[in-house]
Amino acid sequence: MAKTILLVDDSVTMLMSVKNNLEINGFKVETAEDGLKAMEKLNAGLKPDLIITDINMPKMGGIELIKKARALPGFRFMPILTLTTEAAQGKRDEGKAAGATGWLVKPVSGADLLKIIKQVLPGA
């Protein structure tokens, strides 16, 4: 049973790169270009097993997305990872405080990606 991951990033390049990596590893991937679009998908009934989101995005950023998603029914316990750069220690903490499970550091290699997802997603 393939796990579904919702991937949110405003850069199409980044979406493409991470999506590729995830699909190679057998995940089903949905994408959104910002928090607003991600919320639209969630409201439309998408129920991923994991959300990976960038923080700095136009319209709705990752922190707001985490807070909004957590308030939806069925999302309070969902693992959520933020996608940040190595410089953004503050962002990582902010993400955790908003309810993120952990973070991924850009650029993320396929091996790292898989390792971390396995850690937060039992059965992956």
């Binding site: 405003d10 390049t13 980044m14 790169s17 700095n56």
Partner: peptide
């Protein structure tokens, strides 16, 4: 903020 985001994203992508 916009300007920062552009530079930030571009840098992130180049790291790929």
């Amino acid at each position: 903020t916009e300007l920062f985001r552009f530079v930030h994203t571009l840098k992130g992508n180049s790291g790929l």
